[in-house]
Design a protein around this nucleic acid. Structure first.
Lengths: 182, 182
DNA sequence: CTCGTGTGAGACAAGAATGTCTCACACGAG
DNA sequence: CTCGTGTGAGACATTCTTGTCTCACACGAG
């Protein structure tokens, strides 16, 4: 009978992404529980958002670990990264849009994630895989943006969720231009 | 002595992008006016957000007009599009993150914008400029995502605003991979 | 069955945000 | 100068949200 904390957090992220001013009552109903129960698990709105942040960070770190970013070519690493991120894309999209979190502490965790992702692009540039006129910081931000866009578009039914990895990696790595070679 | 409506809307967008739960009082102070004056110009929070949406749509339509999307190659059209969008990127980023707008009416205006942008990608695919395994819908969404990412990153000082057009168009069209040719 | 745990529903007060109002004041036009 | 307009500051009631509490009930373990 215990509430599924993970399910609550995912529902909250999905709802708050669409409607950032949603009340605790709306969050509770979206998760299929009562406001009282939501309050039993999260002291308040702040606590909920902070839990959302911590949960998102933990999931992303796990995804980065699973992606083994240091192995193989940088391109393959990006592929694995996007594939591992897909399950938590909704969470990441919410957190990425919630810029206020980055200001009041907790930014260290995000910096660490940023650094790990950016290092893949650095590696790709150093070994000649990636072009050097686009900074690793920008490529990292762009990855976030594409993941969030794809998550939102999929949630809205505008794109097929099954193409998540393909759409993001192909665009991020290869761009929209048609290539004669390869 | 009249309040600069455009300035108020831009301030509001910039603030609400960072802190979506900001109070009317905070919005007013961010714009350098009193809450009373803000209320004289926008009946309430809903009215403010709706005005923000209408203003954003109008600016984007103007940007699309100025970009002359039907002329020249599709690549050049995308370049012009991004360049014209830059001044309203902050506004667009806010509206893109505020998905709740798309649900309760007004979605028609956005659909029209979507269609105009997507048609550029359709044209590019038809004349062989763009690859056909990435749908125009996705490319449109990706463009939004990249514009929003770049606007946020620039606002946070993580990337140089002057590279706005270059970073977005190069990544969107060419991707991150290094190319031997050309 | 009986008990303990966890939940839903709802009441309640405290607090915050909103919307409206009044008043004083600065400014420009005449 | 005098007037009209638009603004800032603040008071005020209303509404919404929040946080806490109580009570009844469903469920599983024993």
């Amino acid at each position: 009978m215990a509430v599924d904390r993970d399910h609550v957090l995912r529902s909250a992220a999905a709802l708050l992404t669409r409607k950032s001013t949603a009340t605790m009552d709306e969050v509770a109903r979206a998760a299929g529980i009562s406001r009282a129960t939501l309050h039993r698990h999260f002291a308040g709105r702040d606590a909920l958002v902070r839990a959302l942040e911590e949960h998102g960070i933990a999931e992303c770190e796990a995804a980065l670990d699973a992606a083994r970013l240091d192995e193989g070519s940088a391109s393959d690493a990006v592929h694995r990264l996007v594939r591992e991120i897909e399950p938590v894309a909704g969470l990441l999209a919410f957190l990425y849009g919630e810029n206020e979190l980055w200001e009041d502490g907790g930014g260290d965790s995000w910096s660490r994630l940023d650094l790990r992702i950016a290092s893949v692009f650095v590696r790709g540039q150093q070994n000649g895989e990636f072009r050097i006129d686009l900074s690793p910081v920008w490529l990292t931000e762009a990855l976030y943006g594409l993941v969030a866009s794809c998550a939102w578009a999929a949630q809205a039914g505008r794109v097929a969720p099954k193409d998540f990895t393909h759409m993001i990696t192909e665009l991020l790595l290869g761009g929209a231009l048609r290539r004669e070679e390869s």
